[in-house]
């Protein structure tokens, strides 16, 4: 989009995102990623293969979290704990790289943002108070998932009959459910006539509209991201800022699709990833100061910002005068 920048991370990220989408699509046609080997099948790294894909051998880890909350009461929540442990280890090792490098939700949102950019429609800029409010929504959704799933599973409470309707509370409002159920029915992979998931379809529409206008709209409220954000502070990959080199030009905050204030505000600590950074590297690409922002893994800088220069591509807008000659 911009032909004047320091680093160029976007192509690499695009390739990675396409891989992520292909991953889900391959599951859609029934090729298991980890194989159907019994042990491997039960390892649920954060992935986005939806349970509502008929042929998918594994499922999204958030489904497993909900399932574990409901089913776990008989087995001392052992499955859930193992799952959470696996998730925590994955977050420590991979951080939120998942969100903007692999997650299909992220890819679709960026596609919508890109279309919006082509149409020259400005992105919606939220006020600071609203941004902070949205940030809390993801924890609220996480909390609601637990508070709804947990009592349903405990038979002594006598509300087990809700299992058929209220188990998997988040899946009922997840846009992926709407998308996959409808698309499978349209493609004829699943028979018509099963009840239509109205809630999920509405949230799918909301997802499409909101992320068209607001950059990374869904990421701001995603409870899966919320769960990752809880452990984000201890993850090895992070966004590093050298406050000694920051000139407070505010480019990082302007280009950040998550409107992550910390990258601009923080002037003391090196780790500016915090809860909201999805490590997309947009700010690293455009930060005009040499070595001020870096995507860092543990002690190693993967990529650091550098002084912007003209890139070889340019938009047709540029085909006017050259060098004033």
């Amino acid at each position: 989009m911009s032909d004047f920048k320091g680093r160029n991370i976007r192509p690499l990220r695009l390739a990675s995102q396409l891989l992520g989408v292909a991953f889900v699509l391959s599951l859609l046609i029934g090729i298991p990623t980890f194989g159907t080997f019994p042990v491997l099948r039960n390892i649920f790294l954060p992935n986005a293969s939806c349970r509502y894909i008929n042929s998918a051998p594994t499922s999204c880890y958030y489904y497993q979290v909900q399932d574990g909350l409901v089913q776990g009461s008989s087995g001392f929540y052992l499955d859930l704990l193992i799952l959470l442990l696996a998730v925590v280890i994955a977050i420590v090792l991979l951080g939120r790289f998942w969100c903007s490098w692999l997650c299909p939700f992220g890819a679709v949102q960026e596609l919508l943002s890109w279309v919006r950019g082509l149409l020259r429609i400005p992105p919606l800029r939220l006020k600071w108070a609203h941004r902070v409010l949205l940030r809390r929504v993801k924890y609220t959704l996480l909390f609601l998932t637990v508070i709804i799933s947990l009592p349903i599973g405990i038979s002594a409470l006598g509300i087990s009959q809700c299992q058929s309707t209220l188990a998997l509370p988040f899946c009922q409002v997840c846009p992926a459910k709407g998308f996959f159920t409808v698309s499978q029915q349209v493609l004829g992979l699943e028979p018509w006539g099963t009840t239509l998931p109205i809630l999920a379809i509405v949230s799918l529409l909301l997802f499409l509209v909101s992320s068209f206008f607001l950059r990374n709209a869904y990421c701001r409220i995603c409870p899966m991201g919320g769960l990752m954000a809880l452990f984000g502070r201890v993850s090895l990959p992070y966004l590093r800022k050298d406050p000694d080199k920051c000139t407070k030009c505010r480019v990082c905050l302007r280009v950040c699709p998550m409107d992550h204030d910390r990258v601009y505000d923080e002037m003391e600590r090196m780790d500016v990833a915090g809860e909201d950074c999805t490590l997309c590297g947009r700010c690293v690409e455009l930060c005009p100061e040499e070595g001020c922002l870096s995507l860092t893994y543990g002690p190693y800088d993967l990529v650091s910002s550098r002084r912007p220069r003209k890139r070889w591509w340019s938009l047709p807008l540029n085909k006017t005068r050259e060098n004033g000659k």
Partner: peptide, 12 residues
């Protein structure tokens, strides 16, 4: 400092 354009809508 350069002007770093991220989005080419007029407002941005």
């Amino acid at each position: 400092d350069p002007v770093l354009l991220d989005d080419l809508s007029e407002k941005e």
